[in-house]
């Protein structure tokens, strides 16, 4: 079975990572920022699995599964924070979070 070589995966993962990173940096809604972080983590997962296949070692897949669990943990905490803020009727916009200032 001839499929795309590793370069294709690396480029795809890199693009995905960049999109996610841009999302984190440019978006102001914390929910979308969290989603963008998920994209970043997923891009790393794609890379790990592709390399795992390239090297014929399964530890990359193991790594990827751990990352999924970690990503889920981050989401739990992140959503918990967002809900807590939502309850206090804080506008969900990171640029408008200006309680903390010098």
């Amino acid at each position: 079975m001839h499929g795309p070589d590793i370069q294709w995966y690396v480029i795809l993962a890199g693009l995905l990572f960049s999109i996610g990173a841009l999302g984190v940096m440019l978006r102001r809604n914390p929910l979308i920022i969290l989603l963008s972080v998920e994209i970043m983590l997923n891009s790393a997962n794609l890379l790990l699995i592709a390399f795992s296949r390239l090297h014929g070692r399964e530890d990359g897949q193991i790594f990827a599964i751990s990352v999924m669990a970690v990503a889920a943990s981050e989401v739990v905490v992140g959503l918990g924070l967002i809900v807590a803020m939502g309850r206090r009727h804080v506008e969900l916009d990171v640029d408008k979070l200006r309680t903390l200032r010098g």
């Binding site: 914390p30 920022i33 969290l34 972080v37 924070l81 967002i82 803020m85 804080v90 990171v94 903390l100």
Partner: peptide
């Protein structure tokens, strides 16, 4: 909360 969210992001 705000600090926590910033730190998390």
């Amino acid at each position: 909360l705000e600090a926590g969210l910033k730190y998390l992001v």
